[in-house]
Computed example of a mutant assay.
Amino acid sequence: MKRHFSGVRASVFAAALLAASAQAAFFDNTAVEPNEYFEEGPEWKELDLALPALPQEGDLLKIEFNNASTNEEFIDGKTLEVGKDGIARVSLVSRHRSGTETVTREGIRCSTAQYRLYAIKNGDEWIAPKTSVWRDIPLGQYKTLRSELYSRVLCKDGFPKKVDQVIKDIRYPPTERNW
C-alpha cells in the first residue's frame, strides 16, 4: 500500500513539473509569436477638472435605492457629467433622518468599478478630503450607495452612461417603464 501512494505522489509531482514547464514556455517571449495587429493603447490619465457650484435644491434628482441606504439620496442633475477620461462625476446629497445633510463631489470609474471623493461641502464651499485616491466599489451582496450608483445609475457594462440617459433612468426607472 505504501508503494502505491508513493507512486501516486511521484506521478502527481511529475505532472505538476510538466505543467509548470509548459506554462513557463507559453509565457516565454520566444514561445509565443507577437500579435502584429495589437497596439498598446495610451495610458489612462484622469482629467483635471474644476469643481462645479454647490448643488441647488431645484437641481436635485431623488434616487430610490432598495436596502442601500436609509437616507434620502439625491444627484445634482445640473452638474452631472461624463468626462473624456470616462469618469462619471456627480454631486451627491444625502439627507439623514436626523435632518443633517452630507454633500460630496465624487467620480465613478466604470471601467474599473472604482470611486474617488473629490470634495466635501463645508458651509458654503467645497473642501478637499484628507485623502482622494481611487478605491474599489464593493460589488457583493451587501448594497451600498456607491455600488448602486455604479450598477444601476451611472454605468452599464463597464462604460459610463450618457448624462441624458442617467437623468431619464432616475426620473423614470427602467423597472417602471413599459417595454
Rank of each mutant, 00 (worst) to 15 (best):
E43T: 15
N29I: 12
E176K: 11
P160H: 06
F159P: 02
I75D: 00
D164A: 13
E148T: 08
E39K: 12
K143R: 15
I170H: 07
N71W: 10
F5G: 01
F13R: 12
D124G: 11
L18T: 10
V166I: 06
A119Y: 14
K2I: 10
R152S: 10
F27P: 03
A88W: 03
Y142F: 01
G58Y: 14
F74A: 02
E40K: 11
K121A: 10
V82N: 09
D124Y: 04
D28L: 08
E40P: 01
I75A: 06
Y172V: 00
R116C: 11
R105T: 08
L61P: 00
L18P: 11
E46T: 00
K156C: 08
D124L: 09
K62A: 13
D48Q: 14
G99Q: 04
Q165A: 13
V166F: 05
T112M: 08
L154T: 00
C110G: 02
R146F: 13
K168Q: 10
T70A: 12
D136R: 06
D59M: 01
H96Q: 01
C155M: 09
F74Q: 01
L51V: 05
A53E: 15
Q114C: 10
Y150I: 00
K121P: 06
D157M: 05
L92F: 11
K2E: 06
I170Y: 07
E33T: 12
L117W: 09
I167Q: 04
K78P: 03
S91W: 07
Q56V: 14
R3K: 06
A50Y: 15
E125S: 15
L54S: 11
K162G: 02
A50K: 15
S132M: 11
Q165Y: 10
S111T: 00
D59F: 11
R89G: 00
G140T: 05
P34T: 08
V90H: 12
I137T: 04
L139T: 05
P55C: 03
Q114R: 12
K156H: 10
Q141V: 04
G83K: 11
A10T: 00
G7K: 01
D48K: 15
Q56T: 09
S151E: 11
P52K: 06
E106R: 14
C110N: 03
R135T: 14
W179R: 14
L80T: 00
P55S: 03
F159E: 09
E101P: 02
T102C: 04
S151W: 10
D136K: 10
G158L: 02
F74W: 13
G83A: 05
D164T: 12
P42F: 08
I127S: 11
I137M: 09
D124P: 02
A128V: 12
R97F: 10
G99I: 02
G99W: 02
V8N: 04
S132W: 09
A24M: 04
N71E: 14
I63D: 06
R97E: 09
F26K: 11
T131F: 15
G41W: 01
V163D: 06
P42Y: 08
N178D: 10
D28C: 09
Y172M: 03
S98C: 01
Q141W: 08
N178E: 09
D76G: 01
Y37E: 12
V8T: 07
R97Q: 06
A10D: 01
N35H: 03
R97H: 10
R177S: 05
E33L: 14
A119T: 07
A88I: 00
N35Y: 06
A50V: 09
T70L: 13
D157Y: 05
